[in-house]
Design a protein around this nucleic acid. Structure first.
Lengths: 193, 193
DNA sequence: GTGATGCTAGCACACCGTGCTAGTACGATG
DNA sequence: CATCGTACTAGCACGGTGTGCTAGCATCAC
């Protein structure tokens, strides 16, 4: 097995064991039984490693991803994927229950290291998914390539806002407002607004 | 001037110059002309610095109606105004307390008509302020006139997301992420992105 | 043989946040 | 006056991060 493959396998294993793993150069290299220099050769930047790994993971789990269905405009696909992230937030009564759960686990208790780690795992997982979608759309030219981190954070913030608004009382049509807001956020990220 | 004040002033200056600045321990200490140990004494963790600075910014920048001050770009003014809405959300421990309050009053209880009305009053008040700012900016041509409702809802959703993220554990720089996200939202609304 | 190329190993550098210790200024207390 | 405790400052050390660089080792073409 080539070094490149050993590296990817080690990194995947580390991610699988602990979702909050940071995948540092030295840790991955050691785990793979490879030198840092070798890792650097195959993945010139740490970002490259993360990207390749991310693509590999999602390629494996979601062979036919809606993000790749080119029969729809990019913005529609991204919105649909974001809704997927939003889905566990529930609606109506379920949304309130979901927020009760979230509040009790992440906000109410003192932020011990354990609480922090648990939440950051959730957050990072969501970020990974969003980042993957953005990179997939960037591959087909729907948005410029580069550092997606700010855009990812932006979208996650919008999702957080929408999810809390699902638990709060609302006056008008939640669906319409939510859809409009989602498209605004997506249009900004894709530059299609 | 005390060290603590010098540190906060230096950090504020660095943020003002470049909103994407990272505010590392040594950079801030050097800029303030104090040692890293001294900085550590006043702010035991880097997160503490960020939180106090954020709080300082919010309490310090309270011009009565900055939206009409044409000496600043429209986007800066709008961001500054939105921060005003975000201010009651608090920072750090206060943010968690604030969310406890919000949760207990608006999410936890069954949404009786009274609860609904109370929340909607808040929401409408916030919406009114945002809409006022948008119309003021539209009057000077910073954005097209028309129906601001979708844009207002969009901005309020972003603010909701940011406020809940203040109460949740965070890994990186809250200040930087929050500023970037605010500017993204504002740039989209103003079409300046 | 002689290079050129692909890959590996490993060190060096410049950062980062944080812990720790020695030292200084100063007011309260004996 | 002397002494102690407290508030503060300075600065180093440690372990962590990503990245650049050089030297070495195969393997193939000529």
């Amino acid at each position: 097995m080539g070094s490149r493959e050993k590296i990817l396998e080690a990194a995947a294993a580390m991610i699988a064991e602990d979702m909050t793993a940071t995948l540092s150069v030295r840790a991955v290299a050691a785990r793979a039984g490879v030198s840092t220099g070798s890792l650097r050769f195959h993945f010139p930047t740490q970002r490259a490693l993360q990207d390749t790994l991310l693509a590999r993971i999602y390629e494996h789990t979601f062979p036919d991803d809606p993000i790749r269905d080119r029969s729809l405009p990019a913005r529609d696909r991204l919105v649909s994927c974001l809704r997927q992230v939003l889905a566990p937030a529930g609606v109506g009564e379920a949304a309130r229950k979901a927020w009760e759960q979230a509040y009790r686990t992440f906000i109410a208790p003192d932020p011990t290291e354990q609480v922090r780690a648990a939440y950051l795992a959730h957050e990072r997982e969501a970020a990974r998914r969003v980042e993957y979608w953005l990179s997939a759309l960037a591959a087909e030219g729907a948005l410029p390539q580069g550092d997606y981190a700010p855009k990812v954070r932006f979208l996650l913030t919008v999702l957080n806002g929408l999810s809390v608004e699902r638990a709060l009382p609302a006056d008008g049509s939640l669906l319409k407002a939510e859809t409009e807001t989602l498209y605004m956020a997506v249009d900004h990220v894709l530059g299609t607004g």
